[in-house]
Design a protein around this nucleic acid. Structure first.
Length: 324
RNA sequence: GGGAGUGUGCCCGAGUGGUUAAUGGGGACGGGCUGUAAACCCGUUGGCUAUGCCUACUAAGGUUCGAAUCCUUACGCUCCCA
């Protein structure tokens, strides 16, 4: 294989919870390897959502940041769209004999970038079928909708908790396309990399992480998060299906609508971010490919040294690396 | 100084003599996840040498077969009159 710069891998993924320093490390790695960074973040795909998504400002990027600013906040983006774009970016870099640096905290997007997810083709996220079942869910209530699914597709129903209406609706949507949620669920845990990949996970002491999150939210406020949200609200963010669900945006939106004080909104953002970090940790802990390194063990430079060492070792000697 | 309240698990807050280790909410922790994923959903949350035991509703006594629930005192907090 091409293995650039004496590396055993073609892709280096940097994952971990928010505020753990992924972006800086990815940027450093990309500089050293003369390559580019592919973002794996579900919210950074949106244009003009910069401060709240902690997008590295263009003038601070030393290498191109891909898969960022590819959608309008009014659009409803999805993993399937992301997968296509991410694969194109990764393949281009690898094709040029360069290692692709994938960096992000959205677990599902990371998988989409690294693996072939094979999402069934079909309608957009926003579609009449989904809307119809969503409405039905409201009429019947979660339990009865789930009962309905159980009658038509017991295997899928068994996999989805009755309260998880979103998934139940999605199962119906697949059913309409002649597919079963249960079928695609099979082999869910088999992770097959498209290219030889090193996945590095950044962790740190939970308390320190939370302090960093709090500080980062305060910084976002100083940088003008409220103005950013206000601007987006003027162009209809509040109606958007996906982007208004972003942490930081929905809370400020609520405050702007007079539902709570701005002070309360800031607290809500911090808490939501903490929880998000926890979920991210939970997701990545379940990924056996991840080689964890302590983000507090050194500065960006030494962390990059560490990663380079892992990437140069042959897969056989590395603790976990080469699988897939 | 006098009077009236109140004190519950990490926090808030129900419970006013008996299926009570104690409803509920928050927080925290853990988990799930294949087209909204920063979303959506679930579980745990006194301790243990655990099919049972111990410690628990400010503290110490008391009443009772039995108390977080009733009584006494102490301490803390709140309010009212001075």
């Amino acid at each position: 294989m091409s293995s650039p710069d004496g590396l055993w891998c073609d892709v280096i993924a940097v994952v971990g919870p928010t505020a753990s320093g992924k972006s800086a490390l990815a940027d450093e790695l990309a500089v050293r390897l003369g390559t580019e960074v592919v973002s794996a973040d579900a919210m950074q795909v949106y244009r003009r959502m910069d401060i709240g998504t902690a997008k590295t400002p263009p003038d601070e990027r030393r290498v191109p940041l891909l898969c960022v600013d590819v959608a309008d906040p009014s659009e409803t983006y999805s993993v399937a769209c992301y997968e296509r774009e991410a694969h194109a970016c990764v393949d281009r870099l690898v094709g040029e004999g360069r290692a692709a640096i994938v960096c992000g905290g959205t677990g599902l997007y990371v998988r989409a970038a690294l693996e072939d997810m094979d999402f069934p083709s079909g309608d957009q996220t926003n579609n009449p079928v989904r809307e119809r079942y969503a409405r039905l869910a409201e009429e019947l209530g979660p339990q009865r909708l789930h009962d309905l699914l159980a009658a038509r597709d017991p295997q899928s129903a068994a996999l989805i908790h009755p309260n998880n209406t979103r998934r139940v609706v999605r199962a119906f949507e697949l059913l309409e396309q002649g597919l079963s949620y249960a079928c695609q669920h099979e082999g869910l845990h088999v992770r097959t990399n498209r290219h030889p990949t090193l996945v590095v996970g950044l962790t740190m002491d939970r308390e320190v992480l939370y302090e960093r999150i709090n500080a980062r939210v305060d910084r976002m406020m100083e940088q003008g998060l409220v103005d950013e949200v206000r601007g987006l609200a003027d162009e209809g963010l509040a109606e958007s299906l996906t982007s208004r669900q972003a942490i930081g945006y929905r809370e400020i939106l609520a405050a702007l609508a007079g539902e709570c004080t701005m002070e309360q909104a800031v607290e809500d953002i911090k808490r939501a971010t903490r929880r998000y970090a926890k979920r991210q940790l939970s997701w990545f802990r379940g990924d056996e490919r991840v080689v964890w390194i302590d983000a507090l063990s050194g500065d960006v430079g030494s962390l990059a040294d560490h990663v380079m060492e892992l990437a140069r070792r042959s897969p056989g000697e590395s603790p976990d690396g080469g699988r897939g």
